[in-house]
Structures are given as C-alpha cells and as structure tokens.
Amino acid sequence: MITTVNWIAAYNHLFPLLDRQGAPSYCSGPDFLRMCQQVDLGIPNYEQLIESRNRQRKSTSRKSFYWDVIWGMTEPQRFQLFRLFIDKLSPYAPSEVDLIRTTVFDGGYAVPIALVPADLWSSEKLNISLKEIDFAIDAQQFNRATTLAYTCLEGLYKAYVQKHVPSKADVTDLLTLCKVVKEDVSEKLRSRGAFPEQIVNAIPTLTHAVANSRNGFSESHFADDSQKWLATFSRDLINSIGRLLLHFI
C-alpha cells in the first residue's frame, strides 16, 4: 500500500545532525539555504530570508526556519532535498542517516546514475531523465518512472547507433534498436576474444521487460507495492544497460 511520508519525523531525525556544533554534519543557515537552492532556485539567501521573517515577526531560529523552508517545498522537492542531505551526511553519521532513509525512502537506496557523455545525441535530456527516475519513484509516480525508463533506453540506443551503426540511424522502434545494438556489441566483443555472451544476450530480455512495463503493465495490472517494484526494477535495468553501453559510447 502507498504510504505518506511523516515529514515531521524525518525532520526531527535530520535537524539534530545539522545542529551538531563542531561536527562535520553541522549545517549553518546560509549553507542550509544553498543546499535547498539546489532543489528550488526560488529559495532566498540567508539575508533575504531573515529580513523577510523579521518583517513577518516569525522566529529566526534555525530549527524554525529550516522546517518552514522544507515544508514550503513540493513533496517531490522534499524528496530531492532529503536525498542530498543523506548523501552528504552518510559518511559522518551512518546510523542516524539510516533512520532518515527509512523514514523518507522506506530504507531504499538510489541506484548510481549512469551519465551519458555530453557530446552524444540528446545527452542533456538523457541525463535529466536518468536522475528523474529516482525522483519519480520517491514521489510515488510509478507510471512516470517506467515511462522515463523507456525514454532513457531509447535515447541510449539511439546514441549508440548514431555513433557505431550510422546506417541504422533511421530506426525508431525500441526493440529493433535493441537488436541492432546487441548485435554490434557482440561483434565488437567477439573481435577481442571470448566474452560472457549471456550478459549481452540479456540486453533484449531486459529491454522487453522495460517496454512491457511502459506499454502494457498499467496501474490496473499492478497496484501499489507491485507497481513500485516494477518501477524500481525498470530503473535498475536502465542503469545496468547504460553502464554497459557507456563502455562503447
């Protein structure tokens, strides 16, 4: 069943780390706002915020305005912000960060993002989409996550074909693109000697899984936790295939 995050509990786990004087986890007011601006450029700087709160006769204590800034964000933005803090604080307070991770993400870890080199076809779109898969899952937008997964695969395959098999650059169907990529990767590896063919043979199987999750497995087929599993599985497949192809492109 889809659950709602207890943001108050999440914040009560986070703030003591940010308030730990003299510790690497300490986060000053200006530093906190700069972190928030990575998620929302509309967040004011420290001087602007304090001036505004003084005019409104609101508390300027760090605990008060940190919470107000977080609560003023959209829920997807809060997910992004907590992910940033989890990544930043994990080396300094692993057990406390695990509590935050469990509260916000139900203990889940994000899969490392496979970035596409900037000189390739639509690389900016691909980079953004790969990052947004995790954000969509965090926000429980599972259909969006599987659609993004499909888009990422399509872009990765087109980038590969454009570089290595330009004669097939007009191919648009995902499964046909997959076949072209798989055959070319196999040929390149075979020219170097023996290689684990099962890994390359898995590319079309994984692609069919992502294509089916996008085209046929709607919420009417997979509800709540099953739909989350499907979106997460698709994300993992994209990153696995992406890392393999990036060795060549």
Rank of each mutant, 00 (worst) to 15 (best):
T147F: 11
L156N: 07
V111L: 08
V200R: 05
W7H: 09
I50W: 08
C178F: 01
A145W: 01
E132S: 03
R214T: 01
F222H: 14
D98L: 15
Q48I: 05
A93C: 07
L17Q: 03
K88C: 10
L41F: 15
L206W: 08
R62N: 14
P76Y: 02
L245F: 00
L18N: 09
R214A: 02
F135K: 15
A149G: 08
N201M: 05
A149C: 11
I128P: 03
S191G: 07
F195G: 03
A118Y: 01
I199L: 01
N127A: 00
E183L: 01
D98A: 11
L156Q: 01
V111K: 11
A10K: 11
V5W: 05
R243F: 00
L49V: 04
R34K: 10
V200E: 08
R62H: 08
I50G: 10
D98K: 12
Q198A: 14
L99V: 09
Q141R: 15
T205Q: 07
E154K: 00
T232P: 08
L17S: 06
R62L: 14
I2T: 15
I86R: 12
A231M: 04
L126P: 04
W7D: 07
Y11R: 07
D31M: 11
M73I: 07
D170F: 05
L237E: 12
A93T: 09
I203T: 07
A169M: 08
T207M: 05
G242M: 00
R190H: 04
K158S: 03
S218Q: 12
D173V: 01
N12R: 14
Q21Y: 13
L126W: 14
A110H: 14
L206G: 02
E183Q: 08
R190G: 09
D225R: 13
G108I: 14
Y160M: 00
S220M: 12
P24L: 05
K179D: 11
S218L: 14
L115G: 03
E124P: 00
D236Q: 06
W67C: 06
A209I: 08
T146P: 13
S234T: 07
L126T: 06
L99M: 12
G29T: 07
